[in-house]
Simulated assay, not measured.
Amino acid sequence: MKSETDAPVKATRVSMDIVQLLRELDGATTMEVANQLGLPRSTAYDHLRTLEKLELVVNDDGMYKVGTKFLEFGGYARKKKKIFEIGKPELQELAEDTGENANLMIEEHGRGVFLFTAEGENAVELDTHHGYRVHLQTTALGKAMMAHMDEDHVREILERHGMPAITDNTVTDEEKLFKQFNEIREQGYAVDFEERVRRMRCIAAPILDDSDRARGAVSISGPKTRMLGQRFEDEIPQKVIRAANVIEVNMNYA
């Protein structure tokens, strides 16, 4: 797997590593940042103070946390995505119709990015907030998109990010993954059997352009006790495929 620390400007890389660490730890002191990232305490302090001055992090009595200014950047980036504006009402309808979690994902830099999520009346609380990034092969959404990418591009993504096991059911074998791609293209949707979140199942359909390349994917996820039988094998897939198709038409021809 290729290193992700080969950014041309080291200082920028360090600052972003610090922001990522603050997110993962839900806040950290200067010493904790220095120890976790192997930095001199003075270097960690200088970066944290700079980030604070730029209003990107906040200092709560020595505990640094990610600031809400990132919401401004994220909100702007999402607003500029046509797929978000078109997909949002379809996701809301899907969530209301099924009572479950409805999700919209795009691929960026080889990761799956949750662009929008909507919750039905029976939806469970998940970690898939807007902007959350995951390994593509761990979700039905990601697999639905990968099935419609160039094979070389998929292999580049796998080489760069690997195929980590998030649960016991995560697909970690490349040959098995590519075999699933054939099934996804044939049936029109992808399935996730507790591959990223235990006891949760998901069905996703790709959003394609005129060349059958994935622009994103839409899904319904819910507890495995509710994602069974006819509902899981027919009703949910049809609803997801329909929503993806509506988004496709509006994306390509509106």
Rank of each mutant, 00 (worst) to 15 (best):
I86S: 06
R160G: 05
R133I: 05
A28G: 07
P8M: 14
H148F: 15
A217N: 04
E96Q: 13
E233H: 14
Y132E: 06
L21Q: 01
M149T: 02
V246D: 07
M227L: 15
R41H: 08
A165Y: 14
R231V: 09
Q230S: 05
E93C: 05
S15E: 11
A123W: 13
P206M: 05
E32A: 08
A95M: 04
H129Q: 10
P8I: 11
H130F: 09
Q137V: 08
Q137K: 05
R226D: 13
V191G: 03
A118T: 10
L22P: 12
E4A: 02
T30P: 01
I203A: 07
G27K: 11
L136D: 02
T50R: 14
E90W: 02
S3W: 04
K2V: 11
K10Q: 06
R185G: 02
E186Y: 06
T172C: 12
V249Y: 10
M149C: 02
L48V: 09
N122L: 11
C202M: 00
I247W: 01
V14C: 06
G62R: 08
R23C: 08
I184L: 13
A147G: 00
A217T: 03
E194L: 03
A190N: 05
E90V: 01
M1Q: 03
M145W: 12
D60Y: 14
G222P: 02
A190H: 02
E100Q: 13
A244E: 00
T30A: 08
Q238P: 01
L126N: 08
H153M: 04
K239T: 03
N169R: 14
R199W: 10
Q92K: 14
K65H: 11
